[in-house]
């Protein structure tokens, strides 16, 4: 009697163990599949898009397309120069306006703000980062476009409708700032308090501590935050499409209308989708965006590693 209970018990535990092991094996297969998904989807995206842009690359050389300013897909002229210039123009102007504000705000949040104020401002910045960019575009059409068109552009002696490079840059700097702030705050707050205490202890002022110690020690993180912000502006689509005016020309002033690489895709996909070469050209724009953003990410990583070694504390 006792023997039989023991045997059923052991068989039950063995049964449970085998179920557990089976579950373990099945889940292990699933997790491996999921773990490879990131690399798989990346490779799939690159391969599909390069393959689809091959028809264009067989007709024209990359160097020729990138330096030509004739964009006329209907007549098979694919010059990407205006869009490239527009994208670079917007990115640089945006970063010039956004970066100082972002770093100063990050310094405030990490070094000055305390207690309830810190939570409040932090929450506000989270909210700002979560607002869909299309809403910024809508509000900008109501507020920024008339302001730039009626006051700012005439003040600089150029007539403009209000849509253009500068408007896009202004709105993009609002969108990208909270993103840079939260990344910079993270790397500032990761620094040990001993750094601050030591520096203040030998008589440095708060600003001297920030400038010579904290910004250096957190430098790699802040630098890569800025680079990631740059990449984000580079690929922004909806706000430029709403505000840039979408004229394929090389902009001659900050208030001129223009075109960025993503807006090229948005504006030309609808009507020209039926032409295979145009379709291929617009997919090639996607490839260019992917390559540039990839370079940004990669250099952010490299710089972070290098600076970390040089600016050790």
């Amino acid at each position: 009697m006792a023997e039989s209970t023991e045997s059923t018990e052991s068989s039950r535990t063995r049964g449970r163990l085998s179920t557990r092991l089976r579950r373990e094996r099945i889940s292990s297969v699933w997790f491996t599949v999921a773990g490879c998904f990131a690399i798989g989807i990346f490779v799939l995206i690159v391969v599909t898009m390069v393959y689809q842009s091959l028809p264009l690359l067989q007709e024209f050389s990359v160097a020729q397309m990138v330096t030509s300013s004739n964009w006329n897909p209907g007549e098979n002229q694919f010059g990407f120069l205006p869009a490239i210039v527009g994208t670079v123009y917007v990115s640089i102007l945006t970063m010039a306006m956004g970066t100082p504000i972002a770093i100063l705000t990050a310094i405030y949040l990490a070094e000055y703000a305390e207690g309830r104020m810190k939570t409040l401002v932090g929450t506000f910045i989270d909210v700002l980062a979560a607002i869909p960019s299309v809403i910024f575009g809508l509000v900008a059409l109501l507020v920024v476009v008339p302001f730039v068109g009626n006051y700012l552009a005439p003040a600089f002696g150029s007539s403009a409708t209000g849509q253009g490079i500068f408007t896009v840059s202004l709105v993009m700097s609002i969108i990208v700032t909270p993103f840079m702030i939260s990344l910079s705050v993270e790397s500032l707050e990761a620094l040990p308090d001993e750094l601050r205490e030591t520096s203040l202890g030998v008589g440095a002022t708060k600003w001297e501590t920030i400038r010579t110690v904290l910004l250096r020690a957190a430098g790699p993180g802040i630098f890569s935050a800025v680079l990631l912000g740059f990449g984000r502006v580079f690929g922004a689509t909806i706000v430029p499409a709403m505000l840039i005016g979408s004229q394929t020309q090389i902009p001659d002033s900050p208030f001129a209308t223009g075109q960025t690489l993503p807006t090229l895709i948005v504006n030309d996909f609808g009507e020209l989708m039926s032409l295979p070469l145009t379709q291929s050209a617009l997919i090639f724009v996607g490839v260019m965006l992917l390559v540039v953003v990839w370079l940004f990410n990669f250099s952010a990583m490299l710089i972070r590693r290098r600076l970390k070694r040089r600016w050790q504390y």
């Binding site: 990131a38 690399i39 989807i41 990346f42 995206i45 599909t48 898009m49 689809q52 990631l228 990449g231 984000r232 580079f234 690929g235 922004a236 689509t237 993503p262 895709i265 948005v266 996909f269 617009l282 997919i283 724009v285 996607g286 965006l289 992917l290 953003v293 990839w294 940004f296 990410n297 990669f298 990583m301």
Partner: peptide, 21 residues
């Protein structure tokens, strides 16, 4: 590393990718 690259990829690229599919 690949996840970071995907994270920074502009949404329009995903749109174009699915469109090619």
């Amino acid at each position: 590393m690949f996840l970071n690259v995907l994270w920074g990829t502009p949404p329009i690229v995903y749109g174009v990718f699915v469109l090619t599919i």
